[in-house]
Structures are given as C-alpha cells and as structure tokens.
Design a protein around this nucleic acid. Structure first.
Lengths: 122, 122
DNA sequence: TAAAGTGGTTTCCTTTGAGAAACCGGGTTT
DNA sequence: AAACCCGGTTTCTCAAAGGAAACCACTTTA
C-alpha cells in the first residue's frame, strides 16, 4: 500500500523551486549588491575607489566583501593590471548580464507597488 | 553655465530605479516569505496552523510577523470567521499574484545558476 | 476534570549584517 | 623625509534578524 498523499506536504519539485528562488534572492539581497551591479552596468569597467564613490555610503570593508561574493558567483570579473601603483578593474561578466531580466522585472514591480502603497496613505 | 556632468555620479532616475528594486527585494527576502506565498499559491486558502505545517521549521512568532507584513503590503488577505473556535484564513490577493512573473524568473535563473556553480566544482 | 488544538503574543537569547576606524605595503608627489 | 593615493584587511562595536520556550483565552474531545 502506498503512502497516503496529504495535501499539506510541500512536494519535492516544489522544494527544488523554493531553493532556486532563495539562491537567486541571496545573491541579490543585502544593501549594496544591486547598486554595485548597476554601476558596473552603466559605466562598464570600474576601479575600487570609483565604485566606492559611485555607491554612496558604502565602506571599503563592505565593498570588498560584496565584490568577492559577486566574483565567486561569476557575475563580475576582477582584473589586476601590473601598473606602477597596481590598478584593479571590475566588470560585469556576460553571465552577470543575464540577471538584467530579473532586475528589470523587480524595478517595474517595485515602482508600481510604491505608487499603490503611497496612493493608499494619501 | 550648467553643472559639469561627471560620469561617476549616479543619476536621479537611476536612484529611483534602485529604490524600486530594493522595495521589491525587501518584500520578498527573509527566510520565509517566499515559502508562505508558495503555499498559498498552491493551496489557495490556508489557516495559520496549516501554514505552520507547510512551511517546515517556521515558528509561530515568525509566521505571525511575516503574515502581518504580507498583509500590510496587500499581497495576502486575512479573513476571520466567527466559528466556535475562531477560524482564520489567509489567501493571496489578486495583487499578490502579480508577483508570479518575478518569482518565476527567479526560480528559472536560480535553477540554472546552481547547475553552473556545481558543475564548476565537480 | 484533564488534555489537546487554535491563533496567536511575549520574553529572552543567539546569530548575522553592517558601519567606523585604524592599519598596511607599495608607490608617487612635494 | 612627510604626506597622500590605491586597494584593500583587521578589529571593535552596534543593530536587526531570527529561534525557543512559555504563556494566554477560548473550545473541543476524552
């Protein structure tokens, strides 16, 4: 006799889907990643200090940590040039650009959500 | 004479966009919200204890807090029935369902990302 | 009458995220 | 030699997120 199927259990394929969503969310959430990605998207290549000036408020520690994470996930690439004072450049990878669709959807939804919520309280 | 346009400053429209993205992200991130939304999406209406069983590992405090936030943002609706022991039902609103596009994109990207990253370490 | 379920709230605690400041080696400018 | 820029790292601290357990009023079941 097979196990009874109970409606309230979340199925395996569904769990895989939840994990995928959380993977994506973890990669993008936090206070700074989206701003860093956006700066690289707008400006192309960017150096450490440039990024720190772009992303207002970020400290060196956070910037360095976020850049490492983005690099590990292959969303950005870090290039060191052997100049007299070393130059380091960060840029979005082609893979990093595949996030654009999601980011665009979030921007669209968020803009419309803010309208909805602020209209309500007006 | 107009102000010099400096490439490294992030423009106003861009800041609005960043804020929109963060609005969306804040609404979805955290450990539990996506699971709750998914359960409601699969099952339709759901009671408090049913949700707590659906979302394995969540405690009553967290569930209650997350449900309040989702309700404030009009993504779910809470209905109290005047039965002998009160019955409370939660359901996605039509508005809540507009998140489906984003969630679908994130699931797709996340699944493919996991393949990419695990292939690399194999 | 005692135990168990429903829909939570409250309190206390631990873990994680994030910021500020100091520091570092190498190099250039003054 | 002194001071400053670059690309960070280290340490310390504080705030927010999250979890465990106890509690509560009410009602049903045993």
């Amino acid at each position: 006799m097979s196990k009874k199927i109970v409606k309230h259990e979340i199925s395996e394929p569904c769990k895989v889907k939840l994990r995928s969503i959380h993977d994506t969310l973890d990669l993008l959430s936090g206070k700074w990643k989206i701003s860093i990605i956006s700066s690289l998207n707008i400006n192309g290549k960017r150096r450490f200090m440039e990024l720190q000036r772009d992303v207002e408020g970020i400290g060196a520690k956070m910037l360095s940590k976020e850049l490492k994470e983005l690099e590990i996930n292959e969303l950005i690439i870090r290039t060191v040039y052997d100049t007299k004072p070393v130059t380091v450049e960060y840029a979005l990878t082609a893979y990093g650009k595949t996030l654009e669709a999601i980011i665009y959807e979030m921007a669209k939804w968020g803009a419309q959500h803010r309208k909805r919520i602020t209209r309500r309280s007006a």
